[in-house]
Design a protein around this nucleic acid. Sequence first.
DNA 1: AGATAACTGGACCGACTCTGTCCGCTTCGT
DNA 2: ACGAAGCGGACAGAGTCGGTCCAGTTATCT
Lengths: 207, 207
Amino acid sequence: MSAVDRLLIDPSGRQPRADARRNVERLVTAARAAIAETGVDAGAHEIAARAGVGVGTFYRRIPSRELLLLAVLDEVLGETIEVADRALADPDPWQGLSEFATAYVKLRSESCGIGEALGGACGEGLDATLAALRERFRLLVERVQSAGVMRSDVAWQDVPFLLASIATGRHTLGLQATEDQWRRTLSVLLDGLRTPTATTLPGRAPW
Amino acid sequence: MSAVDRLLIDPSGRQPRADARRNVERLVTAARAAIAETGVDAGAHEIAARAGVGVGTFYRRIPSRELLLLAVLDEVLGETIEVADRALADPDPWQGLSEFATAYVKLRSESCGIGEALGGACGEGLDATLAALRERFRLLVERVQSAGVMRSDVAWQDVPFLLASIATGRHTLGLQATEDQWRRTLSVLLDGLRTPTATTLPGRAPW
DNA sequence: AGATAACTGGACCGACTCTGTCCGCTTCGT
DNA sequence: ACGAAGCGGACAGAGTCGGTCCAGTTATCT
């Protein structure tokens, strides 16, 4: 069920008017954009303005700002899980992992709110979805390690951290990042992950 | 000149009382801790409370919250430049780079405010210092590439981005990072940087 | 077409946060 | 011991943000 549908359930069971439905769709789209640009702190007024409606309209259909954001985040994470499942279906394990990694990092770099949600900034609301995504990570990494094309001193738990690390700002040290700087970083990182490897990892795996 | 000294210049030319000097020292220390934990948004009241003084004392000596933070950030970046200079003095180029990289990532991971400052979140106030640090990056990378131990398709400008990427949160996907997760990420990344390399980088270098 | 229920927009409210000031009291240095 | 320098924290003023209310508008049904 999409985020729009979930928000359109009417207690009286009636179909909402066409304009009401249109506005909810606009609000969900706007929330997605606001989450990407502003993060999970995106305000109700900001989202309403992006959608081209007043705050009154916002609160007519949406119980609270937090619930809207949660619904949208859950939807986006659900799409990510689908991408992971397609990657698991790829006959070449490394190819599958590397395609998923690219999509995952791209999503994170284009939406700072998603990054915060994955970092746990949204309370318990997303626990189940996060667990499902975690499971896909484990499967993807175990498959590629069984095939012998990833260094074995990396734990599967390292991989979310490795990928999470590539997503940061457009600037550092006064330097301007190109649109796809993250692709370069990811490329170096994937090279570091392939077998054989030069050094062994320090410390213990995260848990 | 240290941040403390810079803030203790008295318009009348007199030496400030001992307790005043002590409090400014405490405030600078507290600001450093607050920048690390809270970031560059650390509030004046928060810093004063950490220092164990009232806000009145804060504003007696400090023109504004922003100036204090700028002075402290500049001091920390200055120390980082010194670390880079020591790395450049190391006879082994790769060893030098790798030591500096470790120190740089450690600093970034322990102080989120430094990360924001390096990301340009502090306006123009740090431009000169950032340029000086940038220069050290260029020298370090060029030296290691001339020695043939770093893949040549990486631009020196890539390296700040690569290192900036490793510093993020303690959690992702509901997983808990160990204290030194960043060392593992850095290790993979440095392996990816060494010659020879498997793939060539996509896109163009940042500028 | 007219009636009416649903919907809309944005002014507004109250709670909160943050920077910076003021002033009665304390402490240092002589 | 005395006066100037320093101290702390209550307070002011500006701003933000989530959420409500209601007068006016619009869709839908008869």
